[in-house]
Amino acid sequence: MKKPEWLDEDAGPVVRPFALIRGRTRSSGDNFDLIAVVVPTGASAPPEAIIGPEQHRILELAEEGVTVAEVASELDLPLGVVRVLLGDLKDHGLIEVRPPAQVSPLPSERILKEVIHGLRAL
């Protein structure tokens, strides 16, 4: 099928990213860390929930265990938009977003030694 000639990649997305979240920029997902892990709860969506294709994709990704940054990269959407989408899913009880373990102030000696060995073996 021939593509319409007047649209190329430079034209940008047909739907502006913030339209996906109905223009909202604040949600319960505001403070999700970039490397917080998205985990599915396995619950089914409440009847009033509107789950869009992007959120379905997030639920698929969550099955494999992904971070907030990876969701944004995979969906090719700005972080701000992804945080709102994730916040909605969390509000619907469909996902948990787990803050990275042991970020503060530094991970344990054991973990760091493991990282050093792992990097050497790369």
Partner: peptide, 13 residues
């Protein structure tokens, strides 16, 4: 029954 997730450790550099 879903097994509890081992919390993965993610580090940032």
């Amino acid at each position: 029954a879903s097994a509890p997730y081992d919390d993965p450790v993610a580090l940032k550099i």
